[in-house]
């Protein structure tokens, strides 16, 4: 009796938690956002992309600012936070974020910068931790990444990027939650689990009949 009551309580708790988790909807962005941040991305020696990112929160993370810039961003995550692996097709895949940082050669990766006054300052914390406020300038540079070797992004002011807004202003809506791949793959996965369940039932029947 007590056992079945415990099971009912556990199952109901799990269901409630699941409903709570599923009820969360993605954050929506407003096109008329009051705050702006300039994002400067140095893809190589010749190509530099600048974007003015609009946001309605008081602060957003450096990672969110980069994501909302409209450039394609690939990041790797662990318990310590996120690491930017690829921006606009330049960099490494998410499962090998430091692919050009092996074997004692130059360690090439995306270095992260903040503009302080007129000069760039190498970021002391990661982009997922750092908070960006209105009228700040964020920089990303692909190349040798260590603090002594890193190449800073070109000198660009906030006004240069955001005052001539027009087409360069971005406030990219969060992408919709999509199911990657088709449903057939999940049917196959269910089939494999079904086979395992049959094997389990078969084992139970055999052990009972003995």
């Amino acid at each position: 009796m007590e056992k079945s009551r415990n099971i009912i309580i556990t199952v109901s708790s799990i269901c409630l938690i699941l409903v709570w988790l599923l009820s969360a909807s993605p954050r929506q962005l407003n096109a008329q956002d009051p705050n702006h941040v300039a994002v400067v991305v140095r893809l190589d020696e010749e190509e530099v992309v600048t974007q003015c990112v609009a946001f309605n929160e008081e602060q957003i993370s450096g990672y969110d600012a980069l994501r909302r810039s409209g450039l394609s961003v690939t990041a790797g995550f662990d318990a310590q936070g996120g690491t930017i692996c690829q921006i606009d097709g330049v960099g490494c895949p998410a499962d090998n974020c430091f692919c050009q940082c092996k074997g004692g050669q130059d360690c090439i990766y995306w270095s992260y910068w903040h503009q302080v006054g007129d000069s760039w300052e190498y970021a002391r914390v990661g982009a997922t931790t750092y908070k960006v406020s209105d009228k700040e300038v964020e920089g990303w540079s692909w190349g040798p990444g260590t603090i002594s070797q890193a190449i800073e992004p070109p000198a660009v002011t906030f006004e240069e990027v955001c005052d001539s807004l027009g087409s360069s202003e971005m406030g990219v809506p969060m992408e919709e939650s999509t199911s990657s791949g088709n449903w057939l793959q999940y049917v196959l996965f269910g089939g494999i689990l079904g086979l395992f369940a049959l094997a389990l039932v078969y084992s139970q029947i055999r052990s009972k009949s003995r």
């Binding site: 990041a75 790797g76 996120g82 969060m174 939650s177 791949g181 793959q185 196959l188 996965f189």
Partner: peptide
């Protein structure tokens, strides 16, 4: 091989299941 890794960030999505890996 890409299906071997799954990153739920920044937006939660269903993990892929590649039939050949399965």
């Amino acid at each position: 091989r890409l299906s071997l890794s799954y990153v739920p960030y920044p937006l939660l999505k269903m993990p892929e299941f590649h039939p050949l890996v399965g």
